[in-house]
């Protein structure tokens, strides 16, 4: 299964991942970024798109 990591030292809360892949990335009640670290294979394309959309290039998908 694809593994997702977000470098929180780079993340600036632009929220583009939340727009592109809302099932895998979301903001919690405290406006902190939360995300699924292991996603099903059929979500790979979506999280890769989220990685591409990130202005900080903070998201890695392996």
């Amino acid at each position: 299964m694809p593994k997702v990591t977000v470098d929180m030292n780079l993340c600036e809360y632009h929220g583009q991942c939340v727009f592109v892949a809302p099932e895998e990335f979301w903001f919690d009640d405290e406006d902190e970024l939360r995300y699924t670290t292991e996603v099903p294979e059929n979500a790979r394309a979506r999280v890769e798109k989220a990685a591409k959309a990130c202005p900080q290039l903070a998201i890695k998908v392996e």
Binding site: H14, Q16, V20, A21, K49, K52, A53, P55, L57
Partner: peptide, 20 residues
């Protein structure tokens, strides 16, 4: 627009820092 991300803010290392 989640399917094909537009390039209005550029992309990559120079992507607009103020886009949010």
């Amino acid at each position: 627009n989640r399917e094909t991300l537009h390039l209005a803010f550029g992309r990559g290392i120079h992507a607009c820092a103020g886009q949010t």
